[in-house]
Design a protein around this nucleic acid. Structure first.
Lengths: 338, 338
DNA sequence: TATATAACCTTTTGCGCATAAGTTGTATGT
DNA sequence: ACATACAACTTATGCGCAAAAGGTTATATA
């Protein structure tokens, strides 16, 4: 790889002059010299050594994208189209702004923060939340962090969250189920934290708003790990006999459940209605097509990246919560019952 | 971020001593000093500045992962679970070997190579093939390149390809269709290059091996762009009346087609049989579950990363083709006819 | 007693770049 | 004629690190 120094030698000028041309500081260099340097740069296919530039400037032009992997959910995480879709939105935005994306997947959030620090990443996009140890390390490293789909960042000044109107979306869908005549509605999820909790709250509030009592057993807890999911699904399918509808926390689970119902001879939506959340390919291609709450994942990725870049450039400060709207997509998995 | 220099000052020793402790060169430093330094490093949460290290060592510890986006297929590419699955396999392998992954998506392969060069990436994983301009730039930049699912790299010494027994897999599946009594079998794909061509060849050879003639119109060309896919699917569904089975180049297309059939009232597999290729979540969750050719995408990613790292470390040279085996997964979308 | 050697240090150098500070020559104003 | 300004350069410096080269002891060997 040719360096500025070599170029300067071959053109019989100083490195500063070459550097000035590269950075378009036209005021400092005569037009002929500019021309001469530019020709040469093109001829030798010059590309700067970014490490050297980073070192001199103390900025990296790297935006980190960290996925906090749940140990018990690892394979799902990576199989879920959600990840590739959000990466697409992020990468495009980042690249157009002159940054680059480094990806890091780990369940150890302190390790994530150390990685981010060692690379002197300009900012971090974080999918999932830091644990206490991660927060401690992030305290030293003062660069901005934009979380995606996180709810527990109050009091953390350098954190911003890009999320969804999860609660509202789930409220509306549950209301729709009720409007269709359903009263025995279960909620399917694998945990009760963060996004899942918000969606659950929307579901529960909708029940209450319509005078329907929620019971503990209406919460269908699916075990997300590959080895347990099958068994889990079987059990839940059994329990669902007492319900006319199931509000699922994600399209993935909705479709998994419907496949199970199909295998057991339970007809959707005639025997039971299913609603999802996300609106991804899985639900769109399933037949009957899934009634779900739409979110624009790519846009969420873009917005997260845009927000982070604005914070990096000092155009805006870190604000705590930004929530994207959702939209009901009524398709064919919810039946109107009298 | 604290530097080695600052640490050395505070401990009243030279930077070299600190550096030696960091790199475990225990022969050069007394046990007490090692202890003293290690304590201090832990106390201040020292992390090295990677840019500086890269500059000094002329290696980056970065492995680039470039997706050559087909302009007409962009959204599909990013929605396809394939991408997140392969990223998972790659990232894990890379991280364990002490490398980091930088992602770059572009349809301009010369730009990809320039990116790779500017970051002094130690090696490149490339999904999709370079065009001539990209190859020209890659010539200067002599670092190893491992392509994934590429067929046109003969004669390029610094290229290795990790692929699949595409032809064999498709031959076997087509043979299976024929064994099930099918003779009118179409092949669905969106192009006739690379992987798709290999799979098509397998399909065609199987036909010939069984004395079945292939006609031009047996090739069902789907238009992959989002705006055309619907229309395209409609047309192909019409044409499929003359066939009893369709060999699809991917699970994605197989499932899309089945959804379309469902909407048109065509029953799979009773009215028509469908076979896919890939064995991803989409086909596994579809009902009837898709009969398909299995490939282990995560393993492909892992193998690609492992191979690249071995080449980087000089343990092996660049060899041209490595092909992973496939396996038939017989599920419910192919019907036995007499 | 001279010399080698090992143990444990420090000083120096350079990676490629950006930039602050310095130099030269020419034009402008008074 | 002299100060000033400015265009068009060059020289020097430092970013943080790794490693080569250079010290200074104390101990072992001839």
């Amino acid at each position: 790889m040719i360096t500025i120094k070599e170029i300067a030698q071959q053109l019989n000028m100083s490195t500063t002059t070459v550097s000035n041309v590269i950075h378009g500081k036209t005021g400092e260099v005569s037009p002929q010299t500019i021309e001469r340097v530019e020709q040469f740069l093109k001829k030798v296919d010059y590309v700067p050594n970014i490490s050297a530039r980073n070192l001199a400037q103390n900025e990296s032009k790297i935006i980190g994208f960290a996925l906090k992997a749940r140990a018990d959910k690892y394979s799902n995480l990576l199989t879920d189209p959600f990840v590739s879709e959000i990466i697409g939105g992020i990468e495009e935005t980042i690249r157009k702004a002159g940054y680059f994306m480094m990806i890091y997947i780990s369940s150890d959030t302190a390790e994530i923060m150390r990685h981010v620090s060692t690379w002197n990443v300009d900012g971090l996009l974080l999918f999932g939340m830091l644990d206490d140890d991660g927060i401690r390390v992030s305290e030293k490293y003062k660069k901005p962090i934009v979380c995606i789909d996180t709810y527990s960042i109050e009091g953390l000044k350098h954190f911003t969250n890009i999320g969804l109107e999860d609660e509202k979306g789930c409220f509306q869908m549950t209301q729709y189920l009720i409007d269709c005549g359903h009263r025995k509605i279960a909620f399917l999820s694998d945990n009760m934290k963060g996004v899942d909790l918000a969606r659950f709250t929307g579901y529960k509030n909708a029940l209450e708003a319509n005078g329907i009592e929620f019971h503990e057993e209406d919460f269908f807890k699916i075990l997300p790990h590959e080895s347990q999911v099958e068994e889990s699904l079987n059990e839940l399918a059994q329990r669902s006999k007492n319900y006319t509808a199931i509000m699922c926390v994600s399209d993935l689970y909705a479709v998994m459940l419907m496949s199970k119902f199909h295998d057991l001879g339970v007809k959707v939506p005639d025997d039971i209605s299913i609603a999802g959340f996300d609106d991804n390919l899985l639900g769109r291609l399933h037949r009957p097509a899934l009634t779900t709450v739409h979110q624009n994942v790519k846009k969420k990725g873009q917005l997260a990246a845009e927000t982070l870049i604005k914070i990096i450039k000092g155009k805006i400060g870190a604000s705590n919560q930004i929530q994207l709207p959702t939209r009901l997509v009524i398709r064919d998995t919810v039946k109107k019952i009298k």
